[in-house]
Design a protein around this nucleic acid. Structure first.
Length: 257
DNA sequence: CCGGTTGTTCAGCG
DNA sequence: GCGCTGAACAACCG
């Protein structure tokens, strides 16, 4: 069964930050509940789980953090192909399956690992584009430390924009009207701020539209053929050192030199 | 059946 | 010992 919030696609997963929020919300029903059993093929000590309460569920970028007493945390990352099921199973061995009195959740094809210590020591929340503590100023500062980097690569850098994935990168660059192959150092400060703000704004729209099942029809450039502004053909290119698929309008998106 | 991908890690290099 | 990068990996769709 697919989570009712995920009506946009055939898969219940989706790896960018907003989808991680949807995952966290989907398992919120287990927060504060005791783990009854833990099983799966993940290479972790499952015996440490049963009997403990799931004290909190946090997210950092594309990571889902299952918090247990004593500063123990399980990190789950769906990567590109991960998925999860609630109160149902796939015809495949789960990496991790947790049961509670009120239901169970299974995670497939993902990273599952123990984090020892407080998540606050692992993660800088101000780098999470969806977090309350997000800091535009810090992101700008980190960008300015990489003047020679292509802007398309830096948007995928999880130390700067945790939660941003390739779709958000594409749409953010278009909304900020910046050419993906522009070097960071060439972008005027005001345009850099505009790009960051537009990207963040789009990330929250991504969440809203995905929940409403209308994410794909809201795409302006990702997988599109024509520019929604000037109607000229979009370019499709594997840009930057990350060589990730990028759709852009070389007419509307400015390339500073 | 094959090619492509919403992501990350790590071996191997300079 | 670093920083960079290409390869490897994963499941599912068209």
């Amino acid at each position: 069964m697919r989570h009712p919030l995920c009506t946009d696609d055939k898969k219940s997963d989706m790896p960018e930050g907003p989808s991680t929020i949807i995952l966290a919300e989907a398992i919120h029903q287990f927060k504060g509940k005791k783990i009854l059993t833990a099983a799966g093929i993940a290479d972790i000590d499952m015996d440490l789980l049963p009997g403990h309460k799931l004290t909190d569920i946090k997210t950092f970028g594309k990571n889902t953090l299952l918090c247990l007493p004593g500063n123990k945390t399980i990190r789950i990352h769906l990567m590109m192909f991960g998925s999860y099921e609630i109160d149902s199973e796939k015809d495949r061995k789960p990496k991790l399956c947790l049961t509670f009195a009120n239901g169970y959740v299974c995670f497939y094809t993902c990273i599952v690992e123990w984090l020892e210590g407080n998540p606050d020591d692992f993660y800088d929340w101000s780098a999470d584009i969806m977090h309350k503590k997000w800091s535009t100023a810090k992101a700008k500062k980190k960008l300015l430390e990489k003047p020679e980097a292509y802007i398309c690569d830096t948007l995928l850098n999880q130390e700067i924009f945790a939660g941003v994935g390739n779709i958000i990168k594409n749409e953010g660059l278009f909304l900020g009207r910046i050419h993906p192959e522009t070097k960071v150092g060439a972008i005027p400060a005001a345009r850099l701020i505009k790009l960051i703000n537009k990207t963040r704004e789009y990330t929250f729209n991504f969440l809203k539209w995905k929940k409403a099942g209308e994410l794909k029809k809201r795409w302006l450039v990702y997988t599109k053929k024509k520019c929604p502004v000037c109607d000229s053909p979009l370019e499709k290119k594997y840009t930057g050192t990350t060589k990730r698929r990028t759709f852009f309008c070389s007419n509307c998106q400015e390339k500073f030199k």
